[in-house]
Design a protein around this nucleic acid. Structure first.
Length: 598
DNA sequence: AACTCGGTCACT
DNA sequence: GAGTGACCG
C-alpha cells in the first residue's frame, strides 16, 4: 500500500520533471551533409571552404549545401554559385552529378542509407525525418543502460566535451565551466541534477557513442539534440553545430524559450509562425505562455491553439514513426522562364527522362526493400498558374512508356494546343515544372520476388491506364495477392491476404540487443565500404546500364559497346555505350533551338 | 531570365 | 481516395 503510493508519487514527480513525455528523444542531424558526401569522395577538398551547386550555366548554379568554413563568409543555401564566389573567393563549388540532363541526388540518398543503417544498430525506434536527419527514441536503451550498470561502473568520466546543456549560457565563460564540469565529473548523479536531467545525461553518453560510430563506420560528423520530445530535440540540435550535441532538459525550457524566436520552432518557420507573431505581437515562444488555452484556440483554431498552448511549455505529442525508408520516391525538374517547355515534343522528352530515372530508382528500391509502388502522381505547373496541378494514375508494372503516356495524357488534357507546326505542337503557355512521384507501396510476399522481377522485366505491351481509372482494379489483380500492404497501411487494408512478416518487422531489435550494441559496438559487415568496393559497384552500375540499353546479356555485344564511333551531329568520337545519351544531348539542344525560335 | 529537388503531413 | 498546400532543408 505504502509502496504503491510512493510509486505513484514518484511517477507524478517524473511527469512534472520531463513535461509528461516520459521519453528520451534524440534528433541526429548530419552536418552539411551533401558537402560531407562530396568530401568523402574527394578527400583533397577536406579543410577547404566548400559548397554544393546544382547546375552551373546560369549564375554559377544554385547552392544547396554549404560547409561551416564557407558559412563564415556569409555563403548560404539558395545563393548562386557566382554570389558565393564573390563572398568567399577561395570557395570550392562542387556540382551535383547530372544524369539525363538533370541533377542526380542518388549519391546522397545512398549515403543517407548508410547512416540510417548504423543508427538502426542502436535502437529499434528510428524515424527518417529527411535525407540527413533522424529522430531516435532512446527511452528503452537508456533504461537498459541504467538497469544493467551499477552507477559505480558507469562512465562518470565519459568524454562529453562536445556536449552542451541548453540554457547554461555557453558563450559566457563563467557559466560554461559550470556546465562542463558538472557533466565531466559526474557530480550530476549525486546532487544538483533533477531526475530528468540525469536520464538525458545518460542519453548523452549513448549519443556520443552513436556519433563516434557514425564517424568510424561511414566517415561523417553530425550534431544531435537530446530531450523529451521531437520539438525540443530538434531545437536543441540546432544550438551547437557542427559535430556537437546539446541537452535540453525540461527544467531549462522557460529560460531557453524566453529568447527563442517563434520561427525557430519546427512548423513555425512559415506562414503560421508569421500569423502568430502578427496577431499576438510577440517574437519569442515563451511569450505564448501569457495566453490562455481559450484565447489561443479562438485565434488559431482548436487543434493549432492547443498545440501552441502546450508547445510554449515544452510539451509536444508528435509521434515518432518507426520508418527509415521513404514512403514515396519522386523526381522532378524546373523549367524556369526561357527554358519553359512550349511543345509536345519537349514535354514528352522530359517525361521520358524523368520516367527513366524514376523506374531506375524504383527497381533498385524493389531489390533493396522488397516492395512495389502502386501509383504515380504527376505534378506540373502551367505558366500563369499560381500552383501546380497533380494527377494520379495506377502503376501496374515498372514501365517507362506507361508512365510517359499517362503523364502526357494528364498534362495534355487541360492544355490545348493553338497551332500545329509539322510534327510538333506549340502551346500558348509553357510548362514550368514537372514532377513524378511514386507511392502506395506494397510489400512483396517472400518467395514471390522471382515472379515479380520477371513481371517487372518482361517486355510486355504498354497497358494504358486512364487517369480516371480506379486503382482498385490493380488491387484485385492477380499479382497483388502475392503482396501485403506496407506496414503502416495494414490497418486500413480491406484485403484478406495472408499476412506475411515484413523486412521491417524483422529488423526490429529487442531492447536487450540494443544494450549489447552500446557496450560492445558491433562492426557491421558491409557497413563500411572500401574504395575498392565502391569502384567495383560503379563498374557494375555501368555494366548494368549498358545491359539495360541493349536489353541483352551477351558479353560480346557489351565488349563492342566500348568501341568509339563518330557522331553524325558533331563529328566527335563517342563510345558506343554512351551514344544514346549523347544523341539525347543533341536532341535537347534542338529543343532549346526550337524554344528560341518560338 | 530562375530559392532546386526532393520529402512529409494536414485539410477538404 | 484525390488534389491542394504548408513546411522542412
Amino acid at each position: 500500500m505504502i509502496e504503491s503510493m510512493i510509486d505513484l508519487l514518484t511517477r507524478v514527480v517524473l511527469i512534472m520533471e520531463d513535461g509528461g513525455s516520459g521519453k528520451v528523444v534524440v534528433l541526429v542531424d548530419m552536418d552539411c551533409f551533401y558537402v560531407q558526401v562530396e568530401k568523402r569522395l574527394h578527400p583533397e577538398l577536406k579543410d577547404k571552404p566548400c559548397a554544393i551547386v546544382q547546375y552551373n550555366k546560369w549564375q554559377g548554379g544554385s547552392i544547396i549545401a554549404v560547409d561551416y568554413e564557407a558559412r563564415k563568409y556569409g555563403v548560404k543555401r539558395s545563393l548562386k554559385g557566382k554570389e558565393a564566389k564573390e563572398k568567399c573567393p577561395g570557395i570550392h563549388l562542387v556540382q551535383v552529378p547530372e544524369k539525363r540532363r538533370k541533377a542526380d541526388l542518388s549519391n546522397y540518398r545512398k549515403a543517407s542509407g548508410e547512416v540510417m543503417k548504423v543508427l538502426s544498430g542502436f535502437t529499434s525506434v528510428i524515424e527518417r525525418a529527411s535525407i540527413d536527419e533522424a529522430f531516435l527514441d532512446l527511452t528503452e536503451p537508456v533504461k537498459d543502460y541504467i538497469n544493467s550498470n551499477s552507477f559505480d561502473s558507469l562512465e562518470f568520466h565519459a568524454d562529453l566535451k562536445s556536449t552542451h546543456v541548453a540554457g547554461c549560457n555557453d558563450d559566457d565563460d563563467t557559466h560554461k565551466d559550470d556546465c562542463d564540469l558538472r557533466i565531466s565529473r559526474g557530480d550530476w548523479f549525486k546532487s544538483s541534477c533533477s531526475s530528468d536531467e540525469r536520464v538525458l545525461i545518460v542519453a548523452a553518453i549513448l549519443v556520443q557513442r552513436i556519433r563516434e560510430t557514425i564517424l568510424n563506420e561511414v566517415g561523417f560528423t553530425c550534431s544531435a539534440g537530446i530531450s523529451h520530445n521531437k520539438m525540443l530535440a530538434k531545437l536543441a540540435a540546432g544550438m551547437h553545430k557542427p559535430n556537437q550535441q546539446t541537452i535540453l532538459p525540461q527544467s531549462q525550457v522557460d529560460v531557453v524559450f524566453s529568447t527563442t524566436l517563434l520561427k525557430k520552432v519546427r512548423h513555425l518557420g512559415g506562414k503560421l509562425g508569421e500569423q502568430v507573431q502578427d496577431k499576438l505581437k510577440i517574437e519569442c515562444v515563451g511569450q505564448l505562455q501569457e495566453y490562455s488555452l481559450k484565447v489561443l484556440q479562438e485565434k488559431f483554431g482548436l487543434k493549432t491553439g492547443s498545440w501552441l498552448y502546450e508547445l510554449c511549455r515544452g510539451i509536444c505529442h508528435e509521434k515518432i514513426s518507426n520508418r527509415i525508408i521513404t514512403k514515396s520516391i519522386g523526381c522532378g525538374k524546373n523549367f524556369p522562364g526561357p527554358s519553359k517547355l512550349k511543345t509536345a515534343k519537349a514535354v514528352k522528352y522530359w517525361l521520358e527522362q524523368l520516367s527513366r530515372e524514376l523506374v531506375e530508382r524504383l527497381e533498385e528500391d524493389m531489390t533493396e526493400n522488397t516492395r512495389q509502388a502502386q501509383s504515380i502522381t504527376v505534378h506540373f505547373l502551367p505558366e500563369g498558374q499560381a500552383s501546380s496541378v497533380a494527377r494520379t494514375f495506377a502503376l501496374p508494372s515498372y514501365n517507362t512508356s506507361l508512365i510517359v503516356n499517362n503523364s502526357w495524357n494528364a498534362i495534355n488534357k487541360g492544355h490545348k494546343p493553338v497551332t500545329n507546326e509539322e510534327s510538333h505542337l506549340t502551346w500558348t503557355t509553357g510548362i514550368l515544372n514537372i514532377h513524378l512521384s511514386a507511392g502506395k507501396f506494397v510489400q512483396c510476399g517472400k518467395g514471390h520476388m522471382k515472379s515479380l522481377l520477371q513481371l517487372m522485366s518482361s517486355d510486355q505491351e504498354c497497358s494504358f491506364v486512364s487517369a480516371s481509372s480506379s486503382h482498385s482494379s490493380i488491387i484485385t489483380g492477380k499479382e497483388v495477392t502475392q503482396m501485403t500492404l506496407c506496414k503502416e497501411e495494414r490497418e486500413d487494408a480491406v484485403l484478406t491476404t495472408t499476412p506475411t512478416i515484413t523486412e521491417q518487422d524483422q529488423s526490429l531489435e529487442t531492447s536487450s540487443m540494443n544494450i549489447t550494441k552500446f557496450f560492445t559496438p558491433i562492426k557491421r559487415k558491409g557497413s563500411l565500404e572500401t574504395q575498392l568496393d565502391r569502384n567495383a559497384k560503379r563498374r557494375e552500375v555501368v555494366l548494368e546500364e549498358i545491359k539495360g540499353t541493349l536489353e541483352s546479356d551477351d558479353d560480346t555485344i557489351i565488349d563492342n559497346q566500348f568501341e568509339a564511333v563518330l557522331c553524325s551531329e558533331c563529328g566527335e568520337e563517342v563510345l558506343k555505350f554512351v551514344l544514346e545519351e549523347h544523341m539525347d544531348y543533341h536532341f535537347a539542344l534542338s529543343l532549346d533551338k526550337d524554344s528560341q525560335i518560338n
